[in-house]
C-alpha cells in the first residue's frame, strides 16, 4: 500500500478492515475453524471523475461458508456501550466502500479505499 502512495493512516485503515473481515469470516462463516479457505485478492483501481482521477485499492475476500443473513449485516447501534458487535463498524469506518454479495456457494466481500477522500457511497 505504501508503494502505491497511500498514507500511513490509510494503510492502517486497510489493515484494520481486512483483519476484521477475516476475523468475521473465521468466526461467523466457519464457526471458529481455522483450516477453511479464505481467498484474498488485491487490485489497484482508478476512479475517474470529471476533474480528476483518484487511485484506490480494491480488496476482495471470498469464503465458502453459508450465505450471510442480510439482517446480520446491519451493525448495531453505537449508542449502547457494550462489548461485541464492533467489527462491522470498524470495517465501514475504515473503508470507502463495503459491499457483500452471494455468488453461487461463495460469499464475496469487496472493500475499497481511495488514496484521498471521496464522497461516500452507500455501504452494504
Amino acid at each position: 500500500m505504501e508503494m502505491l502512495g497511500f498514507s500511513p493512516e490509510h494503510c492502517r485503515s486497510i489493515i484494520r478492515a481486512v483483519d476484521e473481515a477475516v476475523s468475521n469470516i473465521m468466526k461467523h462463516a466457519y464457526h471458529g475453524r481455522g483450516d477453511e479457505p479464505i481467498d484474498v485478492s488485491c487490485n489497484r483501481i482508478l476512479q475517474r471523475t470529471k476533474s480528476k482521477t483518484v487511485q484506490g485499492v480494491e480488496i476482495l475476500l471470498s469464503d465458502r461458508g453459508p450465505a450471510v443473513d442480510p439482517t446480520k449485516l446491519q451493525a448495531r447501534s453505537l449508542d449502547e456501550i457494550r462489548p461485541g458487535g464492533l467489527g462491522l463498524h470498524i470495517i465501514r469506518g475504515s473503508m470507502d466502500t463495503v459491499e457483500y454479495k452471494r455468488s453461487g456457494r461463495t460469499n464475496r466481500l469487496r472493500l475499497v479505499k481511495y488514496d484521498r477522500p471521496l464522497k461516500r457511497r452507500p455501504n452494504l
Binding site: D19, E20, R82, I90
Partner: peptide, 16 residues
C-alpha cells in the same frame, strides 16, 4: 501497536 474489535470489547468490559 494494534488492537482489534475483540480487544476493544475487552476494554469496554473493563470500563463497565
Amino acid at each position: 501497536a494494534y488492537i482489534d474489535s475483540s480487544g476493544v470489547a475487552s476494554l469496554v468490559e473493563g470500563l463497565k
